[in-house]
């Protein structure tokens, strides 16, 4: 597959320097970010608070002008209306026109794309159905809960039936039910053939949803690729063993194999970091007639990678600009 023709978001060394305060102190918010989002994938843009996720997304949406580098949406330079026409965008913790009802709200955004009449009415009904907000169609947005606002915000982002949906922190501030609803929505979008790019600092969500992720720390991209590759190439596989009735001399034989040993009365917890060590430890346990209570493989996760990268980058440093 031709990767180039498949990329719908391209950024090439995208940078943003803000001048803050009275003296115009220069703060680099985004530093040479090059990434690509491919057609049909769910792309996670991860990083701690203040790492530059929102700034990068705002540059892609034409809300902020880059200080350096270039980017394109559907091959058009950022800010170009024909590129924007194929994109749906949900800003971070969105505030909407709270004096509007759901329907008025969606109708307004539909007009901005030149949609009118029965086509628009039909689209609005579909979207309200999709985000499960049909019951609140004539309710003013000021009466909405945070989860409802997020859902109507997603509906707003989909009004033009976009090919690419960019969501900035769609899960933040939501309760577990709200988060699950947003996750389900993202999966439904993917099923219907849309490309989704979303930013998050909730790694669990990203791991469940994303085909590929990029990690940004202090404005720099520190990792980018398929979730499985990033995890596999990076983490050691640890196994945790819990043993009962282990005699002291058997414990002495296990000690050299273990990375860590925790004694809890009769019970011993041992952390082993290779398959060979696991096999040897099992032999010792069998020969000593001890009882193996539990054997838990520690699955490597994005979180391990994230924390290691964050320690390397000494995040968090700058407050969010």
């Amino acid at each position: 597959m031709d990767v180039l023709s498949d990329g719908i978001v391209h950024s090439d060394r995208l940078s943003k320097i803000f001048k803050v305060g009275f003296w115009g102190r220069r703060v680099t918010a985004v530093d040479g970010v090059s990434l690509e989002v491919r057609r049909g994938e769910v792309f996670g843009f991860l990083g701690p608070n203040g790492a530059g996720k929102t700034t990068t997304i705002k540059m892609l949406m034409g809300l902020i002008y880059p200080s350096g580098g270039t980017a394109t949406l559907f091959g058009r330079p950022i800010g170009d209306p024909s590129g924007k026409a194929k994109v749906g965008f949900l800003p971070e913790s969105p505030y909407f026109y709270d004096y509007l009802t759901s329907r008025e709200f969606l109708r307004f955004y539909g007009h901005l794309f030149g949609l009118v009449g029965s086509v628009l009415d039909k689209r609005i009904d579909e979207l309200l159905e999709l985000v499960r907000m049909t019951h609140a169609r004539d309710l003013q947005l000021r009466k909405f809960s945070k989860g409802m606002l997020q859902r109507i915000g997603i509906a707003q982002a989909l009004i033009n039936d976009p090919e690419l949906v960019i969501l900035d922190e769609p899960m933040s501030g939501l309760d577990p039910i709200g988060r699950k609803e947003v996750r389900d929505l993202i999966l439904r979008l993917k099923e219907s053939g849309k490309t989704v790019m979303f930013s998050s600092h909730i790694l669990h969500d990203a791991e469940l949803l994303c085909d590929r992720v990029a990690m940004i720390m202090k404005g720099r991209l520190v990792a980018c690729g398929h979730v499985s590759e990033l995890i596999a190439g990076d983490t050691t596989h640890e196994v945790e063993m819990v043993i009962d009735r282990l005699l002291p001399e058997a414990l002495e034989r296990i000690k050299p194999l273990a990375g860590r040993i925790v004694l809890q009365g009769e019970r011993i917890m041992v952390v082993l970091s290779s398959q060979q060590a696991v096999d040897q430890a099992l032999d010792v346990i069998r020969s000593a007639k001890a009882k193996l209570v539990a054997l838990t493989p520690h699955k490597a996760s994005l979180e391990d990678l994230f924390i290691r990268k964050a320690t390397g980058a000494q995040q968090p440093v700058e407050a969010q600009v």
Binding site: K58, M61, G62, L63, P81, S82, K84, A85, V87, F89, P91, S93, P94, Y95, F96, Y97, Y109, L112, F113, Q156, N160
Partner: peptide
């Protein structure tokens, strides 16, 4: 201030 402008300027509106 209310960030409502984000949803407008990100649409194909000059």
């Amino acid at each position: 201030e209310k960030k409502t402008i984000y949803t407008i300027v990100s649409k194909p509106v000059a």
